[in-house]
Nucleic acid binder design. Structure first.
Lengths: 267, 267
DNA sequence: CGATCAATTGAGTCTCTTCAATACGCGTGG
DNA sequence: CCACGCGTATTGAAGAGACTCAATTGATCG
């Protein structure tokens, strides 16, 4: 039952240098957003300065704490600094569906303030830290700096692209493929933010939550994970998932990262 | 097998007055987009004029014709004038998932030009007519007119909201609920554009395509439709779907239109 | 009046769910 | 330091919803 390589933590939830304000400026929490946006968009010095200069309030939330409640007005405008958050919707019969998972650095509804009433909830998955700014300040920046406006639009479009891929996952792939796909996606997203080693990741959720994410019962999740392990595609040690062969897992998960739009856009 | 009320067409695919250029301006095709955006956002006279003045090219496409191909650069920037279009993704095993359905008036990738490579395909479902404008013209308008920029952002966010609801549909609802939900959604979207009567709609797709949309096999779609009909929730006459009791169908489909964001936003 | 595609129906199978119970890990308090 | 309690993980067995395979009917069109 014990891992042959020992229990090396593949991921650190709080990475030194990310948690702390990385630049000068008012308080600099939003500079992290700048780094994130710079992954896919070109920002000039002014754009970065504008973000770094935002007066952000730092907040901490315990697991299941709400950032946004379905049915309530949307006022939040935040960046996830540490920990994981998720979006969820609930069906009439009580069934839950996690429709998105957010990793540190993700923008949380910088734009959704354009919609009046939240159509879903956003909650902390683990203990998290977020930086929030007033809605007005964000709208101002959006108007004043075209570069940031475009970058945020692109961020939004990439999230929509993930939604589409998840629909394909839910609608047209079986349990095994679905879970392998999700693990591949999460791994690559974490590695991109330097939050996971190449050889594996720590799953930040219970099997029940994973079930709500991939549209399966926790029982079937459990059996499917075992199946993946028996086939050598993953090695489990508590919630540590070691991935001996990323390409093999990607194949099993029908995973092609194109939809993540990891490349930097031209303009 | 024949409908007791006869075969009254509930929907006309090409509505007089919508197909034709409704206003003056260069050629006015994009004025339709203005009317659409005005459903959820406030546009001033200048915004409308800017849209109406766009030099748009009118194009016609046969069913299955591509507007956008997955893997290709995104250059299209269009509005759907008549007919239906859909977005789809394909799994490795050949399974298809329709991830969005577009009705006349819908904006087709006004914004996706911000992403380099298309992650999915957009195709005509029926014979369609679209109005396209050069990418550059759209980007210019987006920069020059804040009101339009916000309206288009909101349009994008609403589409993302539909994606989330569809994920819930695919992941957590059974076949019957799923289909009832989709029918309720389509009906309300069509009625909003005056493309369907209150008592029903014409389904613009085959049962196989409906299967690809709700993540089911065509056989099971067929049986589920029959089940809905046997319970009096719908009455079918070819592809005409009569809905005797909208509230009942909505209940069966666990349908709450909040996610469509039909209300007009404040700012 | 075939030809063709969509819709329908039947029968059997399988994936995934439901129900039920047990084991494990970990923090807490005695 | 160990017993207890609780949430998570695991396993078994049975049932149901959806799928596959196969064949027939129906509608439309040249």
């Amino acid at each position: 039952m014990s891992s042959p390589t020992g229990c090396v933590p593949f991921m650190r939830v709080s990475v030194p240098g990310i948690e702390a304000p990385p630049t000068a400026g008012a308080n600099g929490h939003f500079a992290m957003l700048g780094r994130r946006l710079a992954l896919h968009s070109r920002l000039n010095a002014g754009d970065r300065a504008a973000l770094a200069g935002l007066q952000a309030e730092r907040r901490r939330l315990e697991p299941y704490g709400y950032l946004i409640r379905a049915g309530q007005p949307t006022t939040l405008c935040a960046v996830l600094l540490t920990g994981f958050a998720f979006r969820q919707k609930t069906a009439g019969d009580g069934g839950r569906q996690i429709v998105a998972l957010h990793v540190p650095g993700d923008a949380l509804d910088l734009q959704n303030l354009h919609l009046g009433i939240a159509d879903h909830s956003v909650q902390a998955l683990t203990r998290i830290e977020i930086a929030t700014v007033p809605k007005a300040a964000m709208q101002e920046i959006e108007k004043a700096r075209i570069g940031l406006s475009i970058a945020m639009t692109r961020d939004m479009l990439i999230e929509a692209s993930l939604y589409r891929e998840w629909m394909l996952n839910l609608g047209r792939r079986d349990a095994r493929t679905r879970i392998a796909h999700f693990l591949s996606e999460l791994h690559i997203r974490l590695r991109r933010m330097d939050l996971a080693a190449t050889e594996g990741l720590e799953l930040p959720m219970s099997q029940e939550q994973l079930g709500d994410l991939v549209g399966l019962t926790p029982i079937h999740v459990n059996r499917t994970l075992r199946g993946l392990e028996e086939d050598g595609l993953i090695v489990r040690e508590r919630r540590m998932i070691r991935i001996p062969d990323r390409a093999a897992l990607a194949t099993a998960g029908d995973f092609d990262p194109a939809y993540l739009h990891l490349e930097k856009a031209a303009d």
